[in-house]
Design a protein around this nucleic acid. Structure first.
Length: 289
DNA sequence: AGTCTGACCTGACTGC
DNA sequence: TGCAGTCAGGTCAGAC
């Protein structure tokens, strides 16, 4: 669930906790599969005693540069959270990794669905290097995006979800960006006009910036919902124009928003604002939620 | 080259 | 009230 704005929110808050300069004084792993590499025992042994040098984000990864050339990469996947807490508070059953900080605090990796992964590595580029450009980076220009779109003939929605193509977008912000740019999720990437590509480029950056400003999107109250490191939900849900608005009127034209499956992902579309491609293909119908 | 499926997991929700 | 079935914001490997 956490996409770029949610991950950025967590990174910003952990930086406010002044995590940089602090030392990991112990590590415990309760669900071994959470540690992608090295093996959990080696992970605990290596990370203990290391000091945080810098905390940043790349795509949906939280990147924590540590002393001795080590880097901790955290991917939250669907339901991962980081809890910052005083040492010694009772562990909840979904907290799978605990890093003790300066013997006084704990950074806990909580993950209900257990899809999230932690990597401790001296070569983070072997993982991060496979990611596409950062959508909010200065070098990600409209022209560059246009040329990226022209190099392939994939459906635009799964393409935008592909982290190797562009890093950081997930289902929510892709639906929002496509709606804002009036582009149907089934359009083939290389059929977008330059004007459409520029509009989509603009809308991607806008929805992400707004998501960050609102400190992420939280939907409902479930276990998998987004909560920041301070245990606060994001405020972006009210700002969503199309995602999970099935059956309600489009905020631009009043047409009823529909939900369709596109590349096995639920997609929310205004069929008037977002004209389907003219190749005769009809999207698979799906019951509305 | 692009698309699709299943796997990884638990909890929330729906319908009977 | 309880149970079974379905679905969910992500990513990857492997088959076609």
């Amino acid at each position: 669930m956490p996409e770029l704005p949610e991950v950025q929110t967590i990174v910003d808050q952990l930086n406010q906790q002044a995590i940089v300069g602090r030392t990991i004084t112990a590590a415990r792993v309760y669900w071994p599969k959470t540690i992608a590499s090295p093996d959990p025992e080696q992970f605990c042994e290596t990370i203990t005693g290391l000091t945080a040098r810098k905390l940043t984000r790349r795509g949906k990864f939280i990147v924590c540069q540590l002393s001795k050339g080590q880097t901790l990469l955290i991917h939250l996947r669907m339901s991962g959270r980081l809890n910052w807490t005083a040492k010694g508070n009772a562990r909840n059953k979904h907290e799978h990794v605990i890093l003790e900080i300066d013997q006084t605090h704990e950074l806990r990796f909580q993950d209900t669905r257990k899809f999230g992964r932690l990597f401790l590595t001296q070569a983070p580029q072997t993982i991060l290097g496979r990611l596409g450009p950062e959508p909010l980076d200065k070098t990600f220009t409209g022209r560059r995006f246009l040329s990226m779109l022209q190099r392939t003939r994939r459906q635009i929605k799964p393409l935008l979800l592909d982290q190797h193509f562009l890093a950081g977008l997930g289902n929510i912000y892709v639906d929002e960006a496509l709606w804002a740019a009036r582009i149907h999720p089934l359009r083939t990437s290389n059929t977008l006009t330059a004007a459409e590509a520029f509009a989509l480029h603009r809308s991607i950056r806008q929805v992400l910036r707004k998501g960050i400003m609102n400190m992420g999107t939280s939907l409902g109250n479930g276990q998998g919902n987004f909560y920041s490191a301070n245990n606060r939900p994001g405020k972006n849900a009210d700002q969503l124009k199309v995602f999970r608005r099935t059956g309600r009127p489009c905020l631009r034209c009043g047409t009823t928003i529909v939900r369709r499956m596109v590349a096995q992902r639920s997609s929310h579309i205004c069929t008037k604002c977002q004209q389907p491609p003219c190749d005769g293909k009809t999207p698979k119908k799906r019951t509305t939620a």
